[in-house]
Each structure stands twice: as C-alpha cells, then as structure tokens.
Design a protein around this nucleic acid. Structure first.
Lengths: 346, 346
DNA sequence: TTGTATGCGTTATCAA
DNA sequence: TTGATAACGCATACAA
C-alpha cells in the first residue's frame, strides 16, 4: 500500500508537511500544497482510517441503533441518515437491536462499548433504564429520533397533535361513531400510546364516546382488527383513525372485502403518508421520516463540530393530506355543522 | 480511558502477556490468563479498535453496499446480514448506492477506497463496468447477493426457474391466457429480465401465446399496470404472473376494484413470499431474503478465516406456496388435463 | 511461559 | 513555512 511517507518522498517534503497539506490544517505554502495533492492523487494515496483514528481520536463514523430495519419508518429514516452522512464524508455503522433478542443485548454490552464512532443516532429505540444508562455511558454525542428526550437532542413527530388532527378531521366531517385502531404494540409503545391519547382527548372535547380497538401496528394487523370491528354491524363505526397508515390501509382493504365502500360507508384516516397511501387514496397526516433522518444526522454532525451546541428537542407537526378515504357520513350533507344530535344513528 | 497498559500493570504482567491473554493467541498460563481477564473486566477495559486495526490490519468490520435500503427485499437481506455479523462480533458499515445519484459515485470513488472493512457484500448492485472494476480493485473478499458472479462468490434466487414454476402452475391449472406483469424496471433489470424469459420459455413450451405488460417493480406499479390490462375486456387474461409479490398484490387489488373476483375470475401468482402475501392469500414462489443475507455473511466470514476458500455460486430454487389466489379458470373443471383446445375461449 | 522492543500509518508538538 | 520526532494503543517477533 502507498502511505503518506511515499507521498512525502515523491513530493520532496517531510511527512509532517505532507500531512498538513493533505488534511488542510496548519501552514503550508500554496505551491507545496498543490504539489503534495498532485502526487498524492497520482499515487492513489488514501489515508488509513485506522491510523487517522488512532492519532486523532476521531473515526469519521456515526453509529445508528434501531430496533427494526425493514419497517417502512425505520428504513426511511435510515436512508435519510445515510444521505446526510454520505454528503459529509462520514461512514455509517448500523446496529440492529430488536427488542428481546440476544443480539440487542450484545449491541448494548459489547458493540457500543467499542466506540467505533464519533456519535450515535438512536431511532425509535425505547431503551430500558439499563440500556439508556449504557447509551449515556458511551460518552459520545447522541441524537434520538422518536425517543425519550432526556438529556439528548431529539427529533420526532408530535404524536399527540397528529392524532388530534386526524380525529378532528373526522369530527369536522360530521362523524360521531369514530374508532381508534391501534394501541396494541408491545414495542413502539410510546408513540402508539400518545396517538391513542390524542384521539381520546379529541373525542372527549367533542363530547363523543371513544371506541378503542387493539391492533398490532402493521398492515395485516390493521386488516384483522378491522375485519373484527366492521363485521359486527352493531359496533360498526362510520369513521376509523388508524394509529398509522399501514393499519389504516389494512382497514380499507378489510372494508372493501366486506363490501363497505370507502369513503361512502366508512371513512378512514391514517398517520404517516406511507408510500402506499396515495394508491389507496388514504387521507393521512404526513410525516417525513427521510427528512427526520437527515435532520438527525445534521444535528449530530453539528454537535461533533461544535461540542457546546445546546441540546434541542424538535417536535414536528404533521400536515393533513386530504385524499379520498374520508367524507361526511351517510345522511350528513356536505356542511359539517349541526350534526351533533345524531349520536345514536346507525 | 483504560488501556492495555493499565490492565497489565494492575494484573502484574507485561503488556505483551496481557495482550496474549486477552486475544487468546500465544502461550499464557491458565492462572495468569484468568487473572488478566478478571482485572480487564473489573477495569472495564475495551480494546481500541483503531489500535487493533492498525496493528493487525483487520477491522472486524464488513461493508455492505446496496442500491436501496427501504425496499422489502433489500431491508430483509440487510437484517439477515446484520444477524450473522452480530453473532460473529463483526460490525456492519452500510453504503447506500442508489443508481444515478452523486452519493453512489462517491461511495465507489471515495468510501470504498478507504477500506474500512475486511470484506464486502454487494446486494443487487448491478454495477457498471467501471464500478465493478473499482469493486475488485478494493482488493478485499467480495460476496454478492443477486449479482453478477464474475470471479466472486454469489448467492441468489434462480429467477429463471422461479418464473418457470410460477407460469407452469397456471398452465397446469388449465389457464391459457396468461399475462406477465413486470419487466419495466430500469434497475433491478437483470432479475426482472430473467423472470420474463422464464415466463416466455414456459409459454412457448406449452404452445401458448405470451402476453407481456410492462410495469414498474412496485405495488402501485403493478396496480396501475393491472388496471390497464384488466380494464380492456378483449385483452383480459385469466391468469397473471407478477414479476414479484408486490406487483402481484397490486394486480389483486386492481382486480378487486374492478369487480373481478380472485381466483374465480382471475388467478394471480407472484414471486417472493412477501410479508403481505399471506394476507392477500397470494400463491407465490418463496424466496427467503433474510436467509440469503445470513448465508452471504457467513460465506464472507469463511473467506476471511480461510482465504483459500473456493469461489462458489449458489442458485436457490424457490418453492411454490399455493394459497387462494390461483384456481382453474372458469369453465375448466378441477382436473387440469385436456384444457388444451380452449385457447380462444373468453 | 513471560518480558522487551519494534512496527502499524497518522497527526501533533516543538524547533528550526 | 518546514522538518524531526514523539505520541496514539495495540500485536507480535524475538529473546529470555
């Protein structure tokens, strides 16, 4: 391999000068810098990351810890993070920490302790007390996406707000029998819970009775839950708030299978703006996981550059995208006002 | 930080002995080994990866290059790779190389050249000549999943075989008007092409006329293509082979929307066994991307241990999973034999 | 079985 | 503005 010594020799300077020219730090005359850069390029010189890390203490690498990789939200966030890091010349080391697995234990006990990174991004991790402790003990800047904001910078959707807006949308359309489908996840629990609370608050504010149907946070989960819910004519709502788009889409598919046209017989609203939302004409509250990932990475990189950057918490407000899965309930004219008395109507 | 010198001092041995005890290489008496390990643990000693890399030339890290992260197949493979690497104590550095992006260029030009890994796994990369050249030039063991098998170990589905089996399934059921939906991807092109060819071969073998409908390789893509295809009554087939499950599921959704019951009016078969396949009762040819990722990682790790491991190419045969999206065409009784003359029947 | 000494490829300190 | 030299933290050849 060609090292900095080779470059220095070929350029007729010392290793020290070559290093200064290549890293851009310290005084070097323009002419020699140019010469060093030229010879380095012609020799195909690439600095050994191991040697650089050893000498500087920096790795030019960022660790990303997430409980799932293949779920839509996580995969999108990961892409966003990768985008930003790539632009800044940082590598990305991925740590998969599925809840309850032995791998997760090893990630926290062994892998993180190696500190092969300058900083850490935790995505939707929901760490236990012990895990959080270890995370902090690593002693590197930490940014979390959808995570507990204790002492670390955080970015994430305002879930309470999103669920409120989703529910309000149905209320404003005149719906009174509105069910919330979700809230059944063991993990992803905090987000799911906040959305349920947002729904409940809005229902209470509107003087409506809440109806909560548990569902795993997935498309098949939403499908199954909705089949159950919609199959019973007496319980059947006219509107459904899905805890996320996958659940909402599952509900739409269930409704179609049961012969319930959407939105004329059933309105469905989700949260996410999932890549399939458009295809199902799903009205939803948009969050942009890709952008969240990018922002998280940039927050972290800033902390690496300027260690005194204050810790910030970013709560994003989702915006409502109205498509064709929501409409006034049957019997209610387009104007939404004055539908209050219809509570008992089938 | 606590270094090996601290451990050595505390244990009353030299750095060399401490190193031997900790790495497990070279002669150390059981008693001192035990003592060193104990003190290392009590001091919370963790070797500096940078120093180890510099001294040994090994990184204990594997690079993974893939064009997409958030697509089902890639995300699953990635999880499988991560699983295996984690078990063996290897880190995973991820390189996103979306076709046509500036990031991809930088990955090949800058990031790979840094060689921050002992080996590389390329997933569905479809590298250009120039890119392939750089990949080889890295000079590290390379395993590819769904990739060109020139000089490198490869693992991947036998796409020709899978498409043949899918098509044969419909032929055996008695279908004669069978369309292939797919073959429209710019990227993912090789796989898509092989599946098309497998379909075409089987149709030719059966003496049937092929019908190819272009579609992007995605659920919405399959949906749109199927809406087009099924909307025209005169062209309408009784069977559809989707180039993958997402396309096939898109077709099922399209059929339902058009009031065509599946499988009584239309049979659909896919390739993948996607996580949504079960929910849509999709008959499909199963491949297991997670397992492919795990195997790829293990093949690579073996090459790292035993550099003379021969290059191998693993072509996996998908197995047919029959669910409820396929049935004999209307008018054809359960026995599939003797349906040959019905070519022109609507 | 253990200790000494050297090298891995850079950066950083200090003199020149 | 440049050069000699000492870290950086560990593994290992060699000597003991």
């Amino acid at each position: 391999m060609v090292g900095i010594a080779d470059v220095a020799r070929a350029a007729g300077v010392s290793k020290a000068t070559a290093s200064r020219a290549l890293t851009g730090s310290g005084y070097v005359s323009d002419s020699t810098r140019e010469r060093v850069l030229q010879t380095a390029a012609s020799l195909g010189y690439v600095a050994s990351t191991a040697a650089v890390s050893l000498a500087t203490g920096k790795t030019q690498n960022v660790g990303v810890v997430m409980p799932y990789i293949s779920r839509w939200f996580f995969a999108e966030v990961l892409e966003g993070i990768q985008d930003a890091l790539l632009r800044h010349g940082y590598d990305l080391t991925l740590y998969d920490a599925r809840p309850g697995t032995d791998g997760r234990r090893r990630v926290f006990e062994d892998f993180l302790a190696r500190k092969r990174f300058d900083g850490l991004i935790a995505v939707g991790l929901e760490p236990s007390d012990n895990e959080l402790e270890r995370l902090i003990a690593v002693g590197r800047p930490l940014v979390s996406v959808v995570g507990p904001s204790s002492d670390t910078s955080t970015i994430g959707l305002d879930d309470l707000h999103a669920a409120r807006r989703a529910t309000e949308h149905l209320v404003e359309l005149g719906h009174t029998r509105i069910a919330f489908v979700g809230g059944g996840g063991q993990h992803w629990a905090h987000v799911d819970h906040m959305r349920l609370v947002g729904y409940q608050q809005t229902m209470a504010d509107a003087g409506l009775a809440p109806m909560h149907v548990f569902s795993p946070v997935s498309l098949p989960g939403g499908y199954a839950a909705a089949v159950d819910l919609l199959g019973d004519v007496r319980r059947r709502p006219t509107g459904i708030v899905g805890t996320c788009d996958e659940v909402a889409i599952g509900a739409i598919i269930a409704a179609r299978r049961l012969g319930l046209p959407v939105p004329s017989s059933l309105s469905v609203v989700g949260i996410d703006n999932h890549e399939y939302a458009d295809m199902f004409s799903l009205t939803t509250l948009e969050q942009q996981p890709h952008a969240q990932g990018t922002q998280a990475a940039e927050m972290l990189l800033r902390q690496l550059r300027e260690p005194n950057t204050p810790i910030i918490e970013l709560r994003l407000h989702a915006t409502l995208i109205v498509r064709n899965s929501t409409a006034p309930p049957t019997g209610v004219p387009s104007a939404a006002v004055g539908a209050a008395g219809a509570t008992g109507a089938g």
